[in-house]
Write a protein that binds this DNA or RNA. Structure first.
Lengths: 119, 119
DNA sequence: ACAAATATTCTATTACAACAGAACAAAGGA
DNA sequence: TCCTTTGTTCTGTTGTAATAGAATATTTGT
């Protein structure tokens, strides 16, 4: 199963992650409202997702069911970034975040607690 | 200046970041060895980078000079990831890293120190 | 100044993600 | 059963990143 998702595929997956198992028709409605896609576009992308193994059709009514979690995709994407931009060193990424002050004070607080809670 | 770099452009920038100001010819040699590019490919991509404003030609000898740092691009790419996959919350990304055990013990140590050193 | 070597631009080709129209299939009500 | 609606696939268009060949310009050694 190839977990690399294109932007279009991610849009579909986001719907499934948010709403759980959903009929194709419903996904099409949601994405039409959200990003203006025609229904055939949604169906095309769903098909790609099925071929790719990240969605399967399930009873009853062939609802679309996600086979990968958002966490898995997050991890994958994050690893790609770490390899591409940080030479594979995950802590470099964190260091960069801290230095660039991209973290709000609240986030820094939460981060401190996270790190403290390690082991 | 559009800081969004394609993979091909990133290859050129990596050379500049690693070696400093470099003549186009030299970049072409390096990338031919590294990734097998023909020299015209390198020149084409350099041109794109110049149009995009991330490289300029400088005296003497019109060497290629990077106008953005690796840190800037890192930050940009990291922000894109955070927005795309973590709903804009940077600390979520860090939390995900900690949970997924993608950090080695050494990295966790360094991370602790980083956090401790905050103010 | 001119030939040879080198540097650069111009123009194509290929591959594929994004998007969607039209054709086709299936299901439900008259 | 047939017609209408709904669901799905098939096929095609568009845009553009990646790559590079051919043409052109520039420099350099003699």
């Amino acid at each position: 199963m190839d977990i690399k998702l294109f932007d279009s595929e991610l849009k579909v997956m986001e719907v499934l992650w948010q709403y759980g198992d959903t009929p194709a028709k419903r996904i099409a409605e949601i994405l039409n409202k959200q990003v203006g896609w025609k229904k055939t576009t949604t169906y095309t992308v769903i098909k790609k997702c099925i071929e790719k193994g990240v969605i399967e059709r399930r009873e009853p009514n062939f609802v679309c069911h996600p086979l990968v979690t958002k966490e898995q995709v997050r991890e994958f994407e994050t690893n790609e970034l770490i390899n591409k931009m940080y030479g594979g060193a995950a802590d470099q990424l964190v260091a960069s975040l801290l230095e660039s002050r991209k973290l709000t004070p609240q986030e820094i607080e939460r981060l401190k607690r996270l790190v403290k809670d390690l082991e």
